[in-house]
Design a binder for these strands. Structure first.
Length: 423
DNA sequence: TCTGGGGTCCTAGGACCC
DNA sequence: TCTGGGGTCCTAGGACCC
Protein backbone atom coordinates (compact mmCIF):
# COMPACT_ATOMS: atom_id res chain seq x y z
CA UNK A 1 0.00 0.00 0.00
CA UNK A 2 0.92 3.61 -0.55
CA UNK A 3 -0.14 6.56 1.54
CA UNK A 4 -0.59 10.07 0.24
CA UNK A 5 0.03 12.77 2.83
CA UNK A 6 -1.58 15.98 1.61
CA UNK A 7 -1.47 19.27 3.50
CA UNK A 8 -4.86 20.91 3.86
CA UNK A 9 -5.10 24.35 2.19
CA UNK A 10 -1.35 24.44 2.46
CA UNK A 11 -0.46 28.10 1.95
CA UNK A 12 -3.33 29.22 4.17
CA UNK A 13 -2.30 26.74 6.84
CA UNK A 14 1.22 28.21 6.69
CA UNK A 15 -0.17 31.71 7.22
CA UNK A 16 -2.05 30.43 10.23
CA UNK A 17 1.13 29.15 11.82
CA UNK A 18 2.34 32.77 11.89
CA UNK A 19 -0.97 34.15 13.06
CA UNK A 20 -3.17 31.70 14.96
CA UNK A 21 -6.00 34.23 15.11
CA UNK A 22 -6.69 33.35 11.45
CA UNK A 23 -8.07 30.00 12.56
CA UNK A 24 -11.72 29.49 11.60
CA UNK A 25 -11.74 32.66 9.51
CA UNK A 26 -11.92 32.92 5.73
CA UNK A 27 -8.37 33.33 4.40
CA UNK A 28 -6.92 33.38 0.89
CA UNK A 29 -3.38 33.54 -0.48
CA UNK A 30 -2.79 35.41 -3.73
CA UNK A 31 -0.31 34.83 -6.56
CA UNK A 32 2.35 37.26 -7.78
CA UNK A 33 1.00 40.75 -8.40
CA UNK A 34 -1.79 39.71 -6.06
CA UNK A 35 -3.55 38.59 -9.23
CA UNK A 36 -5.19 35.26 -8.51
CA UNK A 37 -6.33 33.21 -5.54
CA UNK A 38 -3.99 30.24 -5.18
CA UNK A 39 -4.99 28.89 -1.77
CA UNK A 40 -8.26 29.10 0.14
CA UNK A 41 -9.27 28.16 3.64
CA UNK A 42 -12.36 26.00 4.06
CA UNK A 43 -14.32 29.07 5.11
CA UNK A 44 -13.23 30.86 1.91
CA UNK A 45 -14.25 27.87 -0.22
CA UNK A 46 -17.64 27.88 1.48
CA UNK A 47 -18.09 31.50 0.41
CA UNK A 48 -17.89 30.27 -3.17
CA UNK A 49 -14.44 31.62 -4.03
CA UNK A 50 -13.11 29.31 -6.76
CA UNK A 51 -9.50 28.26 -7.25
CA UNK A 52 -7.53 30.66 -9.45
CA UNK A 53 -10.22 33.32 -9.07
CA UNK A 54 -8.97 36.73 -10.23
CA UNK A 55 -8.67 38.74 -7.02
CA UNK A 56 -10.14 41.93 -8.49
CA UNK A 57 -13.43 40.19 -9.24
CA UNK A 58 -13.82 39.20 -5.62
CA UNK A 59 -12.78 42.43 -3.90
CA UNK A 60 -16.33 43.14 -2.79
CA UNK A 61 -16.89 39.66 -1.47
CA UNK A 62 -13.60 39.80 0.43
CA UNK A 63 -14.63 43.03 2.05
CA UNK A 64 -18.14 41.94 2.83
CA UNK A 65 -17.05 38.78 4.62
CA UNK A 66 -13.79 40.12 5.99
CA UNK A 67 -11.72 37.61 4.05
CA UNK A 68 -8.04 37.94 5.01
CA UNK A 69 -5.82 38.18 1.91
CA UNK A 70 -2.10 37.48 1.83
CA UNK A 71 0.57 37.76 -0.84
CA UNK A 72 2.43 34.51 -1.39
CA UNK A 73 5.49 33.96 0.82
CA UNK A 74 7.36 31.12 -0.77
CA UNK A 75 10.25 31.18 1.68
CA UNK A 76 7.80 30.35 4.43
CA UNK A 77 5.94 27.69 2.46
CA UNK A 78 9.17 25.95 1.55
CA UNK A 79 10.29 25.95 5.13
CA UNK A 80 7.03 24.49 6.40
CA UNK A 81 7.03 21.95 3.60
CA UNK A 82 10.45 20.67 4.64
CA UNK A 83 9.22 20.29 8.20
CA UNK A 84 6.23 18.23 7.14
CA UNK A 85 8.34 16.05 4.85
CA UNK A 86 10.90 15.42 7.53
CA UNK A 87 8.33 14.25 10.05
CA UNK A 88 6.18 12.16 7.72
CA UNK A 89 9.06 10.52 5.89
CA UNK A 90 10.68 9.44 9.14
CA UNK A 91 7.96 6.79 9.41
CA UNK A 92 8.95 4.90 6.25
CA UNK A 93 11.94 3.62 4.33
CA UNK A 94 10.84 4.98 0.98
CA UNK A 95 8.91 8.10 0.02
CA UNK A 96 8.41 10.53 -2.84
CA UNK A 97 8.10 14.28 -2.49
CA UNK A 98 5.43 14.88 -5.06
CA UNK A 99 4.90 18.61 -4.67
CA UNK A 100 5.31 21.36 -2.15
CA UNK A 101 2.33 20.09 -0.17
CA UNK A 102 2.13 16.37 -0.93
CA UNK A 103 4.23 13.30 -0.39
CA UNK A 104 3.71 9.61 -1.05
CA UNK A 105 4.86 7.05 1.52
CA UNK A 106 5.60 3.44 0.70
CA UNK A 107 3.86 1.21 3.25
CA UNK A 108 4.75 -2.03 1.49
CA UNK A 109 5.69 -4.69 3.99
CA UNK A 110 3.89 -3.09 6.93
CA UNK A 111 2.00 -6.30 7.62
CA UNK A 112 2.08 -6.53 11.33
CA UNK A 113 1.19 -3.03 12.33
CA UNK A 114 -2.13 -1.28 12.17
CA UNK A 115 -1.74 1.03 9.19
CA UNK A 116 -4.63 3.21 10.22
CA UNK A 117 -3.22 3.91 13.66
CA UNK A 118 0.24 4.39 12.22
CA UNK A 119 -0.97 7.04 9.80
CA UNK A 120 -3.09 8.68 12.44
CA UNK A 121 0.07 9.04 14.46
CA UNK A 122 1.82 10.66 11.49
CA UNK A 123 -1.01 13.09 11.13
CA UNK A 124 -1.02 14.02 14.80
CA UNK A 125 2.71 14.51 14.95
CA UNK A 126 2.73 16.75 11.88
CA UNK A 127 0.02 18.80 13.51
CA UNK A 128 1.80 19.00 16.85
CA UNK A 129 5.29 19.69 15.58
CA UNK A 130 4.81 21.59 12.33
CA UNK A 131 1.36 22.97 13.11
CA UNK A 132 0.11 21.92 9.67
CA UNK A 133 -3.11 19.87 9.26
CA UNK A 134 -2.82 17.01 6.77
CA UNK A 135 -5.08 14.39 5.24
CA UNK A 136 -3.83 10.90 4.54
CA UNK A 137 -5.28 8.59 1.90
CA UNK A 138 -4.10 4.98 1.79
CA UNK A 139 -4.56 2.63 -1.17
CA UNK A 140 -2.80 0.10 -3.39
CA UNK A 141 -2.04 2.60 -6.18
CA UNK A 142 -1.14 6.27 -6.38
CA UNK A 143 -4.29 7.12 -8.30
CA UNK A 144 -6.44 5.43 -5.66
CA UNK A 145 -4.52 7.26 -2.93
CA UNK A 146 -5.70 10.47 -4.56
CA UNK A 147 -9.25 9.15 -4.43
CA UNK A 148 -8.87 8.15 -0.79
CA UNK A 149 -7.55 11.59 0.02
CA UNK A 150 -10.49 13.17 -1.67
CA UNK A 151 -12.82 11.11 0.49
CA UNK A 152 -11.02 12.21 3.66
CA UNK A 153 -11.40 15.84 2.68
CA UNK A 154 -15.05 15.57 1.65
CA UNK A 155 -16.15 13.79 4.83
CA UNK A 156 -14.00 15.35 7.54
CA UNK A 157 -16.07 14.39 10.57
CA UNK A 158 -16.42 10.81 9.36
CA UNK A 159 -12.79 9.90 8.82
CA UNK A 160 -10.64 11.87 11.20
CA UNK A 161 -8.08 12.72 8.55
CA UNK A 162 -7.14 9.18 7.52
CA UNK A 163 -8.89 6.78 5.14
CA UNK A 164 -7.93 3.39 3.77
CA UNK A 165 -9.29 2.44 0.37
CA UNK A 166 -8.43 -1.21 0.01
CA UNK A 167 -11.22 -3.73 -0.61
CA UNK A 168 -12.79 -4.12 -4.07
CA UNK A 169 -16.17 -3.21 -2.55
CA UNK A 170 -14.91 0.05 -1.11
CA UNK A 171 -13.14 0.88 -4.37
CA UNK A 172 -16.25 0.23 -6.42
CA UNK A 173 -18.34 2.38 -4.14
CA UNK A 174 -15.77 5.19 -4.24
CA UNK A 175 -15.47 5.14 -8.03
CA UNK A 176 -19.24 5.22 -8.46
CA UNK A 177 -19.26 8.30 -6.27
CA UNK A 178 -16.26 10.16 -7.76
CA UNK A 179 -16.88 12.49 -10.70
CA UNK A 180 -14.72 11.70 -13.72
CA UNK A 181 -13.32 15.23 -13.74
CA UNK A 182 -11.90 14.67 -10.26
CA UNK A 183 -9.80 11.69 -11.29
CA UNK A 184 -6.06 12.38 -11.16
CA UNK A 185 -5.02 12.93 -14.76
CA UNK A 186 -8.37 14.10 -16.12
CA UNK A 187 -8.21 17.81 -16.80
CA UNK A 188 -10.78 20.19 -18.21
CA UNK A 189 -10.45 19.15 -21.82
CA UNK A 190 -10.64 15.45 -21.16
CA UNK A 191 -13.56 15.89 -18.76
CA UNK A 192 -15.59 17.44 -21.58
CA UNK A 193 -14.72 14.58 -23.92
CA UNK A 194 -15.71 12.09 -21.23
CA UNK A 195 -19.07 13.72 -20.65
CA UNK A 196 -19.72 13.78 -24.39
CA UNK A 197 -19.26 10.03 -24.34
CA UNK A 198 -21.47 9.32 -21.37
CA UNK A 199 -18.67 8.93 -18.86
CA UNK A 200 -19.68 10.88 -15.76
CA UNK A 201 -18.24 8.92 -12.86
CA UNK A 202 -14.84 7.31 -12.51
CA UNK A 203 -16.59 3.94 -12.57
CA UNK A 204 -18.02 4.64 -16.04
CA UNK A 205 -14.53 4.86 -17.46
CA UNK A 206 -13.81 1.28 -16.39
CA UNK A 207 -16.78 0.09 -18.44
CA UNK A 208 -15.32 1.48 -21.68
CA UNK A 209 -13.30 -0.79 -23.98
CA UNK A 210 -9.58 -0.33 -23.71
CA UNK A 211 -9.28 0.52 -27.41
CA UNK A 212 -11.56 3.48 -26.91
CA UNK A 213 -9.66 4.70 -23.85
CA UNK A 214 -6.41 4.35 -25.71
CA UNK A 215 -7.72 6.37 -28.63
CA UNK A 216 -9.14 9.22 -26.55
CA UNK A 217 -6.47 9.49 -23.89
CA UNK A 218 -3.38 7.83 -25.25
CA UNK A 219 -1.13 5.77 -23.08
CA UNK A 220 -2.17 7.75 -19.97
CA UNK A 221 -5.67 6.34 -20.23
CA UNK A 222 -4.61 2.72 -20.18
CA UNK A 223 -2.42 3.35 -17.17
CA UNK A 224 -5.23 5.22 -15.48
CA UNK A 225 -7.81 2.46 -15.74
CA UNK A 226 -5.37 -0.07 -14.35
CA UNK A 227 -4.49 2.20 -11.47
CA UNK A 228 -8.18 2.68 -10.71
CA UNK A 229 -8.63 -1.08 -10.68
CA UNK A 230 -5.87 -1.34 -8.11
CA UNK A 231 -3.20 -2.60 -10.52
CA UNK A 232 -0.08 -0.60 -9.88
CA UNK A 233 1.31 1.27 -12.89
CA UNK A 234 3.06 4.16 -11.20
CA UNK A 235 5.96 3.59 -8.82
CA UNK A 236 7.38 6.08 -6.38
CA UNK A 237 9.84 8.31 -8.23
CA UNK A 238 13.10 9.48 -6.79
CA UNK A 239 13.82 13.15 -7.35
CA UNK A 240 15.05 13.69 -10.88
CA UNK A 241 17.23 16.55 -12.04
CA UNK A 242 15.31 19.33 -13.74
CA UNK A 243 14.96 19.29 -17.50
CA UNK A 244 13.99 22.90 -17.94
CA UNK A 245 13.99 26.14 -16.01
CA UNK A 246 11.51 28.91 -16.70
CA UNK A 247 11.27 32.46 -15.40
CA UNK A 248 8.07 34.10 -16.58
CA UNK A 249 6.11 36.97 -15.13
CA UNK A 250 3.09 39.08 -15.81
CA UNK A 251 3.84 42.76 -15.47
CA UNK A 252 2.08 44.89 -12.93
CA UNK A 253 1.24 47.33 -15.72
CA UNK A 254 1.22 46.81 -19.45
CA UNK A 255 4.48 47.89 -21.08
CA UNK A 256 4.72 49.62 -24.44
CA UNK A 257 8.33 50.79 -24.43
CA UNK A 258 10.74 48.39 -26.04
CA UNK A 259 13.49 49.12 -23.54
CA UNK A 260 11.22 48.38 -20.59
CA UNK A 261 10.33 44.97 -21.93
CA UNK A 262 13.94 44.28 -22.87
CA UNK A 263 15.08 44.99 -19.35
CA UNK A 264 12.50 42.56 -17.93
CA UNK A 265 13.36 39.81 -20.38
CA UNK A 266 17.09 40.16 -19.82
CA UNK A 267 16.56 39.99 -16.10
CA UNK A 268 14.60 36.74 -16.50
CA UNK A 269 17.47 35.36 -18.57
CA UNK A 270 19.88 36.22 -15.80
CA UNK A 271 17.67 34.52 -13.21
CA UNK A 272 17.61 31.41 -15.39
CA UNK A 273 21.40 31.50 -15.53
CA UNK A 274 21.66 31.79 -11.75
CA UNK A 275 19.42 28.81 -11.28
CA UNK A 276 21.42 26.82 -13.79
CA UNK A 277 24.63 27.59 -11.89
CA UNK A 278 23.04 26.53 -8.63
CA UNK A 279 22.60 23.08 -10.16
CA UNK A 280 26.01 23.19 -11.88
CA UNK A 281 24.30 22.81 -15.21
CA UNK A 282 24.64 24.49 -18.60
CA UNK A 283 21.89 24.79 -21.17
CA UNK A 284 21.96 24.28 -24.91
CA UNK A 285 18.66 25.96 -25.71
CA UNK A 286 17.13 29.32 -24.87
CA UNK A 287 13.55 30.38 -25.56
CA UNK A 288 12.13 33.88 -25.19
CA UNK A 289 8.46 34.78 -25.41
CA UNK A 290 6.43 37.97 -25.14
CA UNK A 291 2.69 38.43 -25.10
CA UNK A 292 0.00 41.05 -24.78
CA UNK A 293 -2.92 40.90 -22.35
CA UNK A 294 -5.12 38.10 -23.65
CA UNK A 295 -8.07 39.40 -21.65
CA UNK A 296 -8.07 42.79 -23.32
CA UNK A 297 -10.03 42.06 -26.46
CA UNK A 298 -10.18 45.79 -27.16
CA UNK A 299 -6.42 45.93 -27.74
CA UNK A 300 -4.51 44.29 -30.58
CA UNK A 301 -3.22 40.89 -29.55
CA UNK A 302 0.26 39.61 -30.19
CA UNK A 303 2.22 36.70 -28.86
CA UNK A 304 5.38 35.17 -30.12
CA UNK A 305 8.17 32.89 -29.01
CA UNK A 306 11.51 31.98 -30.47
CA UNK A 307 14.15 29.43 -29.57
CA UNK A 308 17.84 29.30 -30.23
CA UNK A 309 20.19 26.37 -30.00
CA UNK A 310 23.54 27.43 -28.59
CA UNK A 311 26.78 26.39 -30.28
CA UNK A 312 28.33 25.93 -26.83
CA UNK A 313 26.41 25.06 -23.67
CA UNK A 314 26.61 27.81 -21.07
CA UNK A 315 25.29 29.13 -17.77
CA UNK A 316 26.98 32.51 -17.97
CA UNK A 317 24.55 35.33 -17.29
CA UNK A 318 26.42 37.43 -19.84
CA UNK A 319 26.22 34.87 -22.63
CA UNK A 320 22.63 33.91 -21.95
CA UNK A 321 21.73 37.58 -21.59
CA UNK A 322 23.22 38.22 -25.00
CA UNK A 323 21.21 35.42 -26.62
CA UNK A 324 18.05 36.56 -24.88
CA UNK A 325 18.64 40.00 -26.29
CA UNK A 326 18.99 38.72 -29.85
CA UNK A 327 15.87 36.63 -29.54
CA UNK A 328 14.00 39.54 -28.03
CA UNK A 329 15.02 41.71 -31.01
CA UNK A 330 13.65 39.04 -33.31
CA UNK A 331 10.15 38.94 -31.84
CA UNK A 332 9.49 42.35 -30.30
CA UNK A 333 7.11 44.51 -32.32
CA UNK A 334 6.28 48.11 -31.59
CA UNK A 335 2.72 49.20 -31.06
CA UNK A 336 1.52 46.58 -28.61
CA UNK A 337 0.75 46.63 -24.91
CA UNK A 338 2.86 43.87 -23.42
CA UNK A 339 1.62 42.11 -20.30
CA UNK A 340 3.82 39.10 -19.89
CA UNK A 341 7.18 37.74 -20.95
CA UNK A 342 9.44 34.89 -20.08
CA UNK A 343 12.66 33.02 -20.67
CA UNK A 344 12.92 29.24 -20.69
CA UNK A 345 16.17 27.29 -20.83
CA UNK A 346 16.47 23.57 -21.47
CA UNK A 347 18.57 20.76 -22.87
CA UNK A 348 20.99 20.64 -19.95
CA UNK A 349 24.54 19.30 -19.65
CA UNK A 350 26.62 19.25 -16.47
CA UNK A 351 29.11 22.11 -16.26
CA UNK A 352 32.07 19.75 -16.44
CA UNK A 353 30.84 17.64 -19.35
CA UNK A 354 30.39 20.26 -22.02
CA UNK A 355 31.23 19.44 -25.61
CA UNK A 356 32.60 22.48 -27.36
CA UNK A 357 32.11 23.46 -30.95
CA UNK A 358 35.36 23.59 -32.92
CA UNK A 359 34.36 26.71 -34.72
CA UNK A 360 32.71 28.89 -32.15
CA UNK A 361 34.56 30.84 -29.54
CA UNK A 362 33.80 29.49 -26.08
CA UNK A 363 33.72 32.06 -23.30
CA UNK A 364 32.00 29.94 -20.70
CA UNK A 365 35.12 29.04 -18.77
CA UNK A 366 36.33 32.63 -18.64
CA UNK A 367 32.99 33.79 -17.28
CA UNK A 368 32.39 31.05 -14.78
CA UNK A 369 34.65 32.27 -11.93
CA UNK A 370 33.17 35.75 -12.08
CA UNK A 371 29.66 34.33 -12.14
CA UNK A 372 30.29 32.10 -9.16
CA UNK A 373 31.77 35.04 -7.28
CA UNK A 374 28.65 37.06 -8.02
CA UNK A 375 26.47 34.21 -6.80
CA UNK A 376 28.45 33.94 -3.59
CA UNK A 377 28.12 37.64 -2.89
CA UNK A 378 24.43 37.67 -3.62
CA UNK A 379 23.97 34.75 -1.31
CA UNK A 380 25.76 36.62 1.44
CA UNK A 381 24.36 40.10 0.96
CA UNK A 382 20.98 39.45 -0.61
CA UNK A 383 19.38 38.80 -3.96
CA UNK A 384 20.45 41.11 -6.80
CA UNK A 385 22.88 43.08 -4.64
CA UNK A 386 25.52 42.42 -7.29
CA UNK A 387 24.08 42.42 -10.77
CA UNK A 388 24.81 43.05 -14.41
CA UNK A 389 24.28 46.53 -15.82
CA UNK A 390 21.33 45.39 -17.91
CA UNK A 391 19.21 44.72 -14.82
CA UNK A 392 17.38 47.56 -13.14
CA UNK A 393 17.22 45.72 -9.84
CA UNK A 394 13.75 47.05 -9.26
CA UNK A 395 11.19 44.84 -7.69
CA UNK A 396 8.95 43.66 -10.48
CA UNK A 397 5.81 42.75 -8.70
CA UNK A 398 3.84 44.08 -5.82
CA UNK A 399 3.48 42.45 -2.48
CA UNK A 400 1.40 43.42 0.46
CA UNK A 401 3.24 44.60 3.51
CA UNK A 402 5.12 41.96 5.37
CA UNK A 403 3.83 41.24 8.81
CA UNK A 404 6.16 41.49 11.83
CA UNK A 405 5.74 37.73 12.31
CA UNK A 406 7.04 37.10 8.81
CA UNK A 407 9.98 39.49 9.24
CA UNK A 408 10.85 37.58 12.37
CA UNK A 409 10.51 34.28 10.55
CA UNK A 410 12.86 35.39 7.77
CA UNK A 411 15.38 36.56 10.31
CA UNK A 412 15.36 33.41 12.38
CA UNK A 413 15.38 30.72 9.75
CA UNK A 414 18.02 29.64 7.33
CA UNK A 415 15.97 28.74 4.34
CA UNK A 416 16.50 25.46 2.58
CA UNK A 417 16.99 25.30 -1.15
CA UNK A 418 13.71 24.80 -2.98
CA UNK A 419 13.45 21.59 -4.89
CA UNK A 420 9.80 21.36 -5.79
CA UNK A 421 7.28 21.90 -8.39
CA UNK A 422 5.59 24.94 -6.98
CA UNK A 423 1.96 25.45 -6.85
C1' DT B 1 -8.05 49.70 -13.64
C1' DC B 2 -7.14 44.71 -11.88
C1' DT B 3 -6.89 37.76 -14.64
C1' DG B 4 -0.18 33.22 -11.62
C1' DG B 5 4.05 30.56 -12.36
C1' DG B 6 6.70 26.51 -13.05
C1' DG B 7 7.00 22.07 -14.43
C1' DT B 8 6.40 17.04 -17.05
C1' DC B 9 5.08 13.89 -20.57
C1' DC B 10 3.04 12.35 -24.98
C1' DT B 11 1.92 12.67 -29.84
C1' DA B 12 1.70 13.95 -34.59
C1' DG B 13 4.10 15.33 -38.28
C1' DG B 14 8.13 16.81 -40.86
C1' DA B 15 12.96 16.09 -42.18
C1' DC B 16 16.18 13.03 -43.26
C1' DC B 17 18.47 8.63 -44.10
C1' DC B 18 19.17 4.23 -46.44
C1' DT C 1 5.37 9.18 -67.50
C1' DC C 2 5.39 5.83 -63.93
C1' DT C 3 8.55 6.86 -58.28
C1' DG C 4 8.80 2.32 -51.80
C1' DG C 5 8.99 1.69 -47.34
C1' DG C 6 10.79 1.71 -42.99
C1' DG C 7 13.26 3.77 -39.49
C1' DT C 8 14.99 7.61 -36.40
C1' DC C 9 15.26 12.06 -34.70
C1' DC C 10 13.51 16.48 -33.70
C1' DT C 11 10.09 19.93 -32.70
C1' DA C 12 5.81 22.25 -31.71
C1' DG C 13 1.82 21.94 -29.50
C1' DG C 14 -1.34 20.09 -26.37
C1' DA C 15 -2.61 17.82 -22.41
C1' DC C 16 -1.88 17.30 -17.56
C1' DC C 17 -0.11 18.38 -12.64
C1' DC C 18 0.32 21.46 -8.26
Amino acid sequence: MYALVDCNNFFVSCERTLDPSLENKPVVVLSNNDGCVVSRSKEAKDLGIPMAAPAFKYKELFKEHDVKCFSAKFELYNFKSQQVIKIASSYVLEFETYSIDELFLNLTGFKYINIYDYCLDIRNRVKDEADIPVSIGIAPTKTLCKVANRIVKDFPEKFNGVYILDSPEKIEKALKWLNIGDVWGIGRKLAVKMHDNGVHKAWDLLQKPEIWVRKIMGIHGVRMINELKGIRQLELDSPSPKKSIAVTRSFMEMLTEKEDVRERVETYGIYCSERLRKQNMCCRMVTVFVQTNRFRKDLPEYRNAVTQILPNPTNSSILIGRVVNELFEAIFKDGFHYKKAGVIVNDFVPEDQRLISLFEEDMQNQHLPVMKAMDAMNKKFGKDKVRLGSMSGQNTFGRTQMSPEYEAFLKNNTLPEANFRFH
